[in-house]
C-alpha cells in the first residue's frame, strides 16, 4: 500500500497498488497439448479438479512444472502437486492411473512433503508403454487446483501443438502477501 498526501490541504489520497506475482506453469513432460474440454474424463473436462491444460506425453520423463515445494506425492505415484505460495499445481499422469497402484512409475527425485523443487527438475520416469496398455488415455492434466484463489489465468499454448518439457503452458497471478 502506498499513501500519498493529496494536493488539497487535509485531503488524502490513498492508493492501493495490486502487488501481484505472475506464475508461469511449464509442461511437466514433452508431448502434445490437449485442452481440458477434450480430456476423456468429466472430472477434468468439467474443471472439477481445477483449470489448466493437459499434455499427451511423448516421453516418459516428468519434471516439476513450477519452482516451489512438493505439496503431495500420491502413494500410487500417479499424481503429484507442487505449491508456490498459495498456488497449488497438480500433475495427474494419465487418466484412471490410480488403478495401476504405482506400476510403471519410478520416482527419481528423493522428495517428501515440503522438499524444494526447481522449475523443470526431473522428478519421475514413467513407462508409457505400460500406461498405454492399461489406461484409457495418457492425457496428463496439469492444473491449478485452487483456481478460485488466483487471477488472470491464461492458457499459452494451442490445442494440438507440440511442447517440450519446460515450455510455458499457462500462467496466472497471485497476490503478494
Amino acid at each position: 500500500m502506498c499513501r500519498i498526501k493529496g494536493i488539497d490541504e487535509g485531503a488524502e489520497l490513498v492508493m492501493f497498488f495490486d502487488k501481484k506475482i505472475l506464475i508461469e506453469v511449464c509442461a511437466p513432460c514433452a508431448g502434445k497439448v490437449v485442452y481440458l474440454d477434450n480430456v476423456p474424463d468429466p472430472a477434468f473436462a468439467e474443471r472439477m479438479v481445477g483449470d489448466g491444460v493437459a499434455i499427451e506425453p511423448s516421453e516418459g520423463k516428468f519434471y516439476s512444472p513450477i519452482e516451489g515445494q512438493l505439496e503431495h506425492l500420491f502413494n500410487t505415484k500417479h499424481a503429484f502437486s507442487v505449491s508456490h505460495g498459495i498456488a497449488e499445481i497438480l500433475v495427474h499422469v494419465g487418466i484412471e492411473s490410480l488403478k495401476l497402484e504405482g506400476e510403471g512409475f519410478t520416482v527419481v527425485k528423493e522428495m517428501e512433503e515440503g522438499t524444494e523443487l526447481t522449475k523443470n527438475e526431473l522428478l519421475m520416469e514413467v513407462d508409457l508403454a505400460t500406461l498405454k496398455e492399461k489406461l484409457p488415455s495418457l492425457n496428463t492434466p496439469v492444473l491449478i487446483a485452487n483456481y478460485d484463489d488466483v487471477q488472470d489465468f491464461k492458457v499459452l499454448v494451442a490445442e494440438g501443438s507440440e511442447v517440450a518439457a519446460g515450455d510455458k503452458i499457462f500462467q496466472f497471478s497471485i497476490r503478494k502477501k
Binding site: D41, A43, M48, V49, G50, F74, A79, L90, H92, L98, K99, D148
Partner: peptide, 17 residues
Amino acid sequence: KNGFHARPAGIFSKKAK
C-alpha cells in the same frame, strides 16, 4: 473403492465451496 482421489475430492471441494 479407489480412495478419495482427484475426481471425488474435486467434486466434493467444488460443492463445499
